[in-house]
Design a protein around this nucleic acid. Structure first.
Lengths: 132, 132
DNA sequence: TCTATAGTTAACCATTATGTTAAGTGTGAT
DNA sequence: ATCACACTTAACATAATGGTTAACTATAGA
């Protein structure tokens, strides 16, 4: 069928970050940290219907954030943290950047205060670091 | 104005992950890593219209991922990495988890871990195609 | 077998997202 | 003053999201 859909590069990140962009789904994830749970258990803290939860779970599954299994008539979900890891991996590519930014901000502030404290910050921050 | 909207807890994460969920916006971010750029410069690699880019930038700005400034008739954007950092912070709460998972699920992943851990593919998402 | 439980699927609706083109806003240059 | 440039805003079309209720499937238990 369509299980062999050609995957655009980065599409997994779309699904991944898209799944994380919803508070209910993040709540579900946080609940799953303490252990696997059934759908009704997961639904309990929320004031939305069971079908809504069911679809949130499908979104999480499609993003490879959870795996699901059936035992009796209960379906339980558990975290599949490798996907979270790949989100972290993507972000870590910029880790250097925001770590740097604190240093550079310090530098910059130091320079500003030693020069002209009154100038508007917008324009001259660009003046001083040149574009490759 | 109504710019002082009360912020639901976690709403910033919604905006943040939501902003990262789009390939164009991630592309813009990656471009901005090498330095600030104007809107037309940012638009160049993409085949979508300038207004579309303009709105992507607004999304990134709302998520505090970029800041913008005007110089002359050009508006330039630059990364504001602290927001990326807070995404990483959220994820880091689960870091222990996915680090653990490699040990705990070792039996299941034994055959998969023979690959490079760098790409972390989501190979078995299609397993759910039974469910009928 | 019959019923209650657990969950999914279907159909629908409102809202948001993402793209388009056309028109508007500032600013630099002639 | 006028034109060109670099955007932004407006208006619109379409698709995706996220919720609902109702109906369906499957299993446990009487």
């Amino acid at each position: 069928m369509l299980s062999v859909m050609p995957k655009r590069p980065g599409e997994d990140l779309d699904l991944l970050f898209g799944a994380l962009a919803d508070p209910t789904r993040r709540g579900i994830i946080e609940r799953l940290v303490v252990g696997e749970a059934t759908v009704t258990e997961l639904a309990a803290p929320f004031s939305i219907s069971l079908p809504a939860i069911s679809r949130h779970l499908k979104v999480l599954e499609r993003a490879s954030l959870i795996t699901r299994s059936k035992r009796g008539r209960c379906r339980s979900a558990r975290l599949s943290p490798t996907s979270l890891a790949s989100a972290a991996t993507w972000l870590s590519r910029y880790e250097r950047l925001w770590a740097e930014s604190f240093d550079r901000l310090d530098e910059h502030l130091a320079q500003l205060t030693s020069e002209q404290p009154t100038t508007l910050t917008e324009t001259e921050t660009q003046d001083r670091d040149r574009e490759r």
